[in-house]
């Protein structure tokens, strides 16, 4: 079904998403002051930080296991949507926050790309799509 090119694109997106999410995990779990600062502003210190870190870890793993990619992408997209909301409503985009925010957007985009390429694997949205009508030879007269 999927063309090999799309498949490669999907894997690139998955790796990118997992890599970016994965490298922020360290800061979250190690209670890096900047991370603590972020979550304090959100009013989620410390449980929220650890909870979201755990979810991100799960998303990273799911994104790399072939049979669960779509679910990883779905979870990742949800988490990043949350992060983006955070930037919009509380954190803002100044200084280093801009970089963090754009990384969240990048991961979000990667997850959505993966989801779109692999939409057939989702349990929802299964339409029986045949765009082309079938052909049948008719006698000409």
């Amino acid at each position: 079904m999927k063309s090999p090119k799309l498949k490669i694109l999907s894997w690139i997106a998955q790796f990118a998403a997992a890599a970016i999410m994965g490298q922020t995990l360290y800061f979250k779990f190690a209670a890096h002051p900047e991370s603590v600062q972020l979550f304090t502003e959100l009013g989620m210190e410390p449980h929220g930080r650890l909870l979201i870190g755990a979810f991100e870890l799960i998303a990273c793993v799911l994104l790399l296991i072939p049979s669960s990619i779509v679910y990883g992408a779905l979870l990742g997209a949800c988490l990043m949507a949350g992060a983006i909301i955070g930037h919009i409503t509380e954190l803002g985009w100044e200084g280093p926050r801009l970089q963090l925010g754009s990384l969240a957007i990048a991961v979000f985009a990667c997850c959505i790309t993966t989801l779109i390429i692999r939409r057939r694997e989702l349990p929802l949205l299964k339409a029986i799509q045949t765009e082309k009508p079938t052909k049948r030879a008719r006698p000409k007269d």
Partner: peptide, 19 residues
């Protein structure tokens, strides 16, 4: 979304799936 914004960011765990 409003609850997440005004009351507690935790409400956004609901906002996102609802979106």
């Amino acid at each position: 979304f409003l609850a997440g914004w005004r009351i507690s960011f935790y409400f956004h765990f609901l906002t996102v799936p609802m979106i």
